[in-house]
């Protein structure tokens, strides 16, 4: 079986998602955890772009003077590419919000460890 570019990139996407899930459980430092989680997002984006790929195809930009039928047969599928643009921006904004929250919490706790900051247990209302 021939290994195509598309298949290789799909494996890369899968590997990125698994690295992200690994980071979600085992990494303690919040900034590293968040960077690891952003790999899930990037892996999914890579996965989407892989699906649009066409072996030996061209970039989906219609240049003047191009034959439309030939273009339609050879161009990559442009709809998911447009969706990925949105998804990248969403990922960046989410990351920004998380980092801002981390900065606030660092002032309060003086630590970046998720175990120390985010494990404040909720008891049966007995605190104080």
């Amino acid at each position: 079986m021939m290994i195509s570019t598309q298949l290789l990139c799909l494996f890369a996407a899968g590997a990125l998602i698994i690295i992200g899930l690994f980071a979600a459980i085992f990494i303690d430092n919040i900034i590293k955890k968040v960077v690891g989680l952003s790999f899930i997002e990037e892996g999914v984006n890579l996965f989407i772009i892989c699906l649009t790929y066409k072996e030996g195809g061209i970039v989906p930009i219609l240049a003047p003077g191009m034959n439309v039928n030939w273009f339609a047969q050879n161009a990559a599928y442009p709809l998911p590419q447009a969706l990925v643009l949105t998804s990248i921006v969403i990922g960046a904004s989410t990351l920004a919000v998380i980092l801002a929250l981390t900065m606030f919490l660092y002032k309060k706790y003086g630590s970046l460890s998720a175990h120390e900051i985010l494990n404040n247990k909720y008891d049966m209302g007995d605190e104080e």
Binding site: I40, F47, L51, L79, I90, L101, I117
Partner: peptide
């Protein structure tokens, strides 16, 4: 403790959101 809760929700959301997107994209593909 509202900041902590918000941060937890966002961190869990960065697993939930991409998985939903992945499901949608497989359907799109």
């Amino acid at each position: 403790d509202n900041y902590e809760t918000a941060l937890k929700y966002m961190i869990l959301g960065s697993i939930g959101g991409p998985m939903l997107l992945l499901g949608i994209t497989i359907l799109l593909a």
